[in-house]
């Protein structure tokens, strides 16, 4: 076994240890219950350990270099419109199929049906859920475009984000009450385990290949946009729909 792999494996073990301690403490001390299906849980834990190790290994080998090489290639090409088109496709494409978002959208359709916002038919719900998914995917595509444009132009991140937060606050007072919880949550679920490393590497790569940009100050922030715009778009969807 190569030593790097072993090192990652040991690191993963310590990453996962706190969960085991918390679960053990609550199960034995607070709830005073035995662990059911111990064998399955042990095999599952082993899977989690192997999975995390492989994932981190692959991150360094595949996703980070890929994101960076794309960023460098676009910077060398020098075409802003292609870069922005790519940014939109990346945001929209990774979000529209995101399982967590599909789950939240279906849940939201049930809430809307119960709140009598839409009809209680199966078709009305499916349409509502699909509309919501497309809204969120559009908003993430839009967010990555704005975020990339910010890196290229060197705009300070805080004014955009704070402006966005103010937008969220203002819209909260006008949006229907039942959509607010879902809108707030949808900001958090859109950024998946696959998207985050790629988008982060893209941002940092862009900031390091454009003269006058600092990767630390300008490279981060894409994820922040991607978690902010869905809140605004979903509340708007609730107000229109």
């Amino acid at each position: 076994m190569p030593p790097v792999f072993l090192k990652t494996l040991i690191g993963s073990f310590f990453d996962l240890l706190p969960i085991a301690v918390v679960i053990g403490f609550f199960q034995f001390v607070v709830l005073d219950q035995p662990i059911p299906n111990l064998v399955e849980i042990l095999i599952g834990s082993l899977f989690v350990l192997i999975g995390l190790t492989l994932f981190l290994q692959g991150l360094e080998m595949g996703l980070f270099p890929l994101g960076e090489s794309l960023a460098f290639a676009f910077a060398r090409k020098g075409s802003l419109s292609w870069l922005l088109l790519f940014a939109f496709a990346l945001g929209f494409g990774t979000t529209v199929a995101e399982p967590a978002l599909i789950a939240v959208a279906n849940e939201a359709a049930n809430v809307a049906a119960e709140g009598l916002v839409i009809g209680a038919t199966e078709q009305a719900r499916a349409e509502y859920a699909l509309g919501l998914r497309l809204t969120v995917a559009l908003s993430v595509g839009f967010a990555i475009v704005i975020g990339v444009l910010r890196i290229v132009r060197g705009w300070p991140v805080q004014y955009l984000i704070i402006g966005g937060y103010l937008g969220v606050i203002v819209m909260t007072f006008f949006a229907p009450a039942e959509i607010i919880g879902i809108a707030y949550d949808s900001g958090g679920v859109t950024t998946s385990t696959m998207t985050v490393p790629l988008v982060t590497a893209l941002g940092v790569g862009l900031a390091s290949s454009i003269r006058g940009r600092n990767p630390m100050v300008d490279g981060f922030g894409l994820i922040a946009f991607a978690s902010l715009t869905p809140m605004i778009f979903v509340m708007a969807y609730g107000m229109i729909g």
Binding site: I43, G44, S45, L46, F47, V48, L49, I50, G51, L52, T53, L54, F55, L56, Q57, G58, L59, E60, M61, G62, L63, P65, L66, T193, M194
Partner: peptide, 18 residues
Amino acid sequence: VGFGFVYVLVGLAFFLQG
């Protein structure tokens, strides 16, 4: 990069299943 991509995929599958 290709191997890294496969590692990420398989790793994520194990992780989620676990």
